[in-house]
């Protein structure tokens, strides 16, 4: 993908930590939640980062591309407008659904890994792509349950999605780790099966183990095991970018800086 071959190491921009993001050393790019931004009045902090030449990538959470409901083109249009407003080289959302039958789940729900569900997803992704000014990347989600009668592994499902839509992949290694812990996904097999040449960038996030269940909270420190999955990924491909997602319980600037440094260390280890 032209223009974003090397995003570097970034962090999710959130209004609560805007000054922190501006101050942090070594932030090469940021991601903004598209639904939180409004055309015509971008946050001052985002404008400042853009002026500094920091790429800003819109990340959506509400397109519900895996859902059976019709894609809400107003949401797609908003995402596209935000992309144009910040001059983003691409946008992203998740392989999931967040609405069904008019109800909002409030969560990123996993899609059943069946051929039929894939057909629906592919149709929705194509429709979104036709209405977006920039390429679309799609992210693997953390699932606490697996739908029955799955016909494909998660890696195969994403590989087929990429093949049929030409979308990009946003691999969240914390979600991958969560699925390994909670539903038995094999991270290595996942990385073997997905087309790594279509990797747009990587998400890293923190979580917490509660008994047998790993909670992908984005509100706790990044576990060494998650960095281990990143290490595994980096041993196979040089990711164009790696981004730290933190959505709540924001720690001190120092702690955030050290998490970014730990991510950079893993990435640099494989750059030789």
């Amino acid at each position: 993908m032209a223009g974003i071959t090397d995003l570097g190491v970034g962090i999710g921009w959130r209004s609560e930590i805007d000054l922190t993001v501006e101050r942090l050393p070594g932030v090469d790019f940021v991601e903004v939640v598209a639904e939180n931004l409004h055309i015509g009045h971008l946050p001052e902090s985002v404008t400042l980062l853009l002026e500094r030449g920091i790429p800003v990538l819109p990340h959506a959470v509400s397109l519900s591309l895996g859902g059976a409901d019709e894609v809400d083109l107003k949401r797609v249009q908003h995402l596209g407008e935000i992309a144009e407003a910040v001059g983003a080289p691409m946008v992203s959302d998740h392989v999931c659904f967040v609405r069904a039958g008019g109800l909002d789940s409030g969560h990123l729900m996993p899609v059943p890994r069946t051929k039929d569900a894939l057909d629906v997803l592919v149709a929705n992704v194509r429709l979104a792509q036709r209405n977006l000014p920039v390429p679309l990347a799609l992210e693997n989600v953390a699932a606490l349950l697996e739908w029955p009668d799955g016909e494909l592994s998660e890696g195969q499902f994403l590989a087929e999605l990429v093949e049929r839509t030409d979308c990009w992949l946003l691999v969240d290694v914390a979600n991958l780790y969560a699925n390994a812990r909670n539903i038995g996904t094999d991270p290595e097999r996942f990385l073997d099966e997905i087309p790594l040449e279509r990797l747009a960038y990587v998400h890293v996030a923190g979580g917490e183990q509660h008994g047998d269940v790993y909670h992908d909270t984005h509100a706790h420190a990044v576990l060494p095991e998650v960095l281990g999955v990143l290490d595994e990924l980096c041993s196979r491909v040089r990711p164009p970018g790696v981004l730290l997602e933190r959505d709540d319980n924001y720690p001190s600037d120092t702690e955030i800086a050290s998490e970014l440094a730990a991510i950079r260390a893993v990435v640099d280890k494989h750059r030789g």
Binding site: E16, I17, D18, Y250
Partner: peptide
């Protein structure tokens, strides 16, 4: 002391819980 942060739009959050 770095125990709370204030954002540009005036949101105050504690750094520790």
């Amino acid at each position: 002391a770095g125990l709370v942060r204030v954002s540009r739009d005036g949101l105050v959050t504690a750094v520790h819980s």
